[in-house]
């Protein structure tokens, strides 16, 4: 179990993590979601005491991780696949880790078999593919039979079989009563594995809720209406205070009105509708909207008239915002 309270990390002038508080509970998979560069890895390093928080603290089973006498049994971490000496074989790497806490050699062979590295365990880790590196990282995370498992972007570089395997592994680990904390920048991945979500953007907590309530949060994006009576539709929508935009094929994207209101108004005026569809954003879009919101909030909080206010929106985020209407059509 992990409890972060008011975690803050500042590198020079850059605030990587802002007053972050959350809890990772045993028995479930908690997804740690945020765009690249949002502070997920920094937070995970602070959990392990590798980076020192500028303010706040984080406890593992009630104590700072650095005060644990059995660290490998407290938290098993896959930080990144590169946290391995490239010149050492996978087996020697695991044996060296195991030796620190007297973990038997038998356990080393067990985790090698578990992650499916048996055939290459004698080879230098430097020659491993990204996927093999991830498997080695997972093997080392599981070595000490830890109560909490922390995986940073575990599906990176894994093939579809590997992704399926790790999803099931995480569910199994949680079912055994362990706390499982897994980061990803992909909402779709989290929707499949996590029961709880901690969402951050630019180092700030955006959401800390169950996956179900996150899904429920997804708002209708608009209503797609198709009609041969374009002029009448335009008029009735405008009269009701809505907006509409042609999206091709004689269809319109109507906003600020529910499908019910559009349908009722059309019926009242005798307008024939060939299509009336409420469009919901995908989880991925809901996630992006949330994180983009954090960015916009950031930009405004710099002072509305400040010269740096507008340019402080990163181009990548702006691109995401621009891309949204297009994605919406696809998601229909």
């Amino acid at each position: 179990m992990i409890e972060a309270v008011g975690l803050r990390k500042v590198y020079g002038k850059k605030v990587a993590v802002h007053d972050l508080s959350f809890t990772v509970r045993p028995g479930i998979v908690t997804g740690f979601l945020g765009p690249n560069g949002s502070g997920k890895s920094t937070t995970m390093r602070m959990v392990l005491g590798l980076d020192r928080p500028t303010a706040g603290h984080v406890l593992v089973d009630g104590r700072p991780f650095v005060r644990h006498h059995a660290p490998l049994s407290a938290v098993g971490a896959l930080l990144d696949a590169k946290a391995v000496h490239t010149g050492r074989s996978a087996r020697k790497h695991l044996q060296a880790m195991a030796a620190t806490a007297g973990i038997p050699r038998k356990r080393v062979e067990e985790v090698i078999d578990l992650v499916g590295l048996g055939e290459v365990a004698g080879k230098r880790a430097g020659g491993f593919s990204l996927g093999m590196g991830q498997r080695l990282g997972i093997a080392s995370a599981l070595l000490g039979d830890p109560a909490t498992v922390m995986f940073d972007e575990p599906v990176n570089g894994l093939d579809p079989d590997g992704i399926l395997w790790i999803r099931n592994l995480m569910k199994d680990l949680a079912a055994e009563g362990r706390a499982v904390f897994v980061s990803s920048h992909l909402m779709s991945e989290m929707a499949l594995t996590a029961q709880h979500l901690v969402v951050i953007g630019r180092g700030r907590l955006i959401a800390d809720e169950s996956v179900q309530s996150f899904v429920d949060r997804v708002q209708p994006r608009g209503v797609v209406v198709r009609t041969p009576q374009v002029a009448e539709l335009t008029e009735l929508v405008r009269a009701a205070g809505g907006t509409l935009r042609p999206i091709g094929d004689g269809s319109f994207d109507v906003r600020e009105m529910t499908a019910e209101r559009i349908g009722d108004a059309a019926a009242a005026r005798g307008v024939a509708l060939h299509e009336l569809t409420t469009v919901k954003a995908s989880l991925e879009e809901a996630f992006m909207e949330l994180t983009a919101g954090a960015v916009e909030y950031q930009a405004r909080s710099g002072g509305p008239s400040g010269p740096g206010a507008a340019p402080s929106v990163p181009p990548a985020q702006a691109a995401v915002a621009d891309a949204r209407p297009v994605r919406q059509e696809v998601s229909r």
Partner: peptide, 17 residues
């Protein structure tokens, strides 16, 4: 109400290091 996972506890020792 959060149960603690009860696995083997492998303690780190200087000899182990």
């Amino acid at each position: 109400g959060f149960p603690q996972y009860a696995g083997t506890r492998y303690r780190v020792t200087f000899g182990g290091l």
